[in-house]
Lab assay of single mutants.
Amino acid sequence: MEVRTIKVFTTVDNINLHTQVVDMSMTYGQQFGPTYLDGADVTKIKPHNSHEGKTFYVLPNDDTLRVEAFEYYHTTDPSFLGRYMSALNHTKKWKYPQVNGLTSIKWADNNCYLATALLTLQQIELKFNPPALQDAYYRARAGEAANFCALILAYCNKTVGELGDVRETMSYLFQHANLDSCKRVLNVVCKTCGQQQTTLKGVEAVMYMGTLSYEQFKKGVQIPCTCGKQATKYLVQQESPFVMMSAPPAQYELKHGTFTCASEYTGNYQCGHYKHITSKETLYCIDGALLTKSSEYKGPITDVFYKENSYTTTIK
C-alpha cells in the first residue's frame, strides 16, 4: 500500500517557510505537534488534498525554529505562539472599519479597549522592536488589523473576551517599542525636605499616572512627601515624541487643539466601556464603527496623549 502524501510549508514567522512532505494517514499533531492554519487549530486533523502548498504555523520545537521565533517575536515564552494563534482565530472574524481616516474595530468580545489602543497607536510616533509587531502594525494602518490585535493580546497575556485596560495595554506595548531616546527629568520640591531631581528613561519617561493635564504637570502637581507634608512635583525636561497622561476616570474637559487623542471610560472596574476622542479640525468621538463630532467635550476621561518633541522648564 502506497503512502499518500502532500507537500506543505511549516513556519513560526510566515517569513521562513520549511518544506514538509506530510503523510495523509496521520494527523498534523502526530507529525508536527500543535499546528495552526489561519489561526485555526488543526492539530487533530489529517492532511487533505486542499492543504497542498498551504502554510501551517507550528510551535518552535527545534533550534532553527526557536531562533526564527525569537528573532521575529522577541520572546522565548513557549506558550506565546499558541496564544497568538488562538487569538487570531477570533480577531480574523472582527470587522476593521476605516473611521475618520483611522483603522478602528467594530465592537465584539469586549474589544473596546483594543480599538482605543489601536486608534491611539496610529496617532503617536512609535516604532516597535519585534519585527512581528512592526509588520502587523503597518498592515493594521492599511486596514488589516487582525494579526496586530492578536499579537497585542498575546504580548499582554490576554484572551479574547476578557476586559482590558488601555493604560495597561499601552504599557505592555511600550515595553516592546523603541523608547531608548526618551528621557524625563522631574523635580520634587518640599518646604521641609528641599528639592530632589529624578531622571527617568524609556517607558517611565512617557507615562504618568495622577493627572490628565500635561500643562498642569509642567506647572506642578501636589504629591505627598515622605515627611508627610505636601510637596510639588513638576516637569523639568521632556525628550520624547509623545507623552501619555493618565488618571482614574473623572469628568474632564478636553479643549480642541490642546491634545492629540484621549480615552474615555464609562462604567466601573468590573464592567465598563471605552471610547476614543481625537482632536482634528474639530473633536471626534470614535466608538467602534461609530463616529460623532463636537466642538467641545466633557466626560469621564482616563488617558490623554500629547505630541511632544523637546521641553525644558522655565521655572527657576
Rank of each mutant, 00 (worst) to 15 (best):
V8I: 11
V8T: 06
T10E: 01
T11W: 02
V12E: 04
D13R: 00
L17V: 06
T19M: 11
T19V: 12
Q20C: 11
V22I: 14
M24H: 10
M24K: 03
M24T: 09
M24I: 12
Y28R: 01
G33A: 01
P34G: 06
D38E: 11
A40I: 15
D41Q: 10
D41F: 01
D41M: 06
T43S: 15
T43V: 05
I45T: 13
P47I: 00
H48V: 12
E52D: 11
K54R: 15
K54P: 00
K54W: 11
T55C: 08
F56R: 01
N61Q: 07
L65Y: 01
R66G: 12
A69F: 07
A69Q: 10
F70D: 14
F70W: 12
Y73M: 01
Y73V: 02
H74E: 07
D77G: 01
P78C: 14
F80K: 01
Y84R: 04
Y84T: 05
S86Y: 08
T91D: 00
K92F: 02
Y96R: 03
Q98S: 13
N100E: 09
N100I: 07
N100T: 13
S104T: 15
I105P: 01
N111F: 00
C112V: 02
C112R: 07
A115P: 03
A117G: 03
L119N: 01
L121N: 06
Q123G: 02
Q123V: 03
E125C: 10
E125R: 09
N129D: 07
L133G: 00
Q134R: 11
Q134I: 08
D135I: 07
R139S: 09
R141D: 00
R141E: 08
G143L: 01
G143M: 00
G143Y: 00
G143C: 00
E144S: 14
E144Y: 12
N147V: 04
N147Q: 14
C149S: 05
A150G: 05
L151R: 01
I152D: 00
L153G: 02
Y155R: 00
Y155V: 01
N157F: 08
K158A: 01
G164I: 03
T169F: 03
S171T: 11
S171E: 11
Y172E: 13
L173K: 03
Q175D: 08
N178P: 03
L179Y: 04
C182E: 01
L186Q: 13
N187A: 11
V188L: 09
V189F: 10
C190Q: 04
K191T: 11
C193D: 00
Q195I: 11
Q196F: 13
L200V: 12
G202C: 04
E204S: 06
V206Y: 06
Y208P: 11
L212W: 02
L212Y: 06
S213T: 08
E215D: 10
E215A: 03
F217G: 05
K218V: 07
G220Y: 02
C225W: 01
C227H: 04
A231Q: 08
T232G: 07
T232W: 13
Y234V: 12
Q238W: 00
S240M: 01
M244C: 12
S246P: 04
S246A: 04
A247Y: 07
Q251R: 10
Y252T: 13
L254H: 06
K255P: 08
H256K: 12
G257Q: 06
T258L: 09
T260L: 05
C261S: 02
A262F: 03
A262I: 00
A262M: 02
G267W: 06
G267E: 15
C271I: 10
C271M: 12
H276E: 03
I277N: 01
K280I: 07
K280C: 08
K280D: 10
E281A: 05
T282Q: 13
T282F: 12
Y284A: 06
Y284L: 13
I286R: 07
G288P: 03
A289P: 09
L290F: 14
L291P: 09
T292Q: 09
T292I: 10
T292V: 10
S294V: 15
K298S: 12
K298D: 06
T302W: 05
D303V: 08
V304N: 05
N309P: 13
N309W: 10
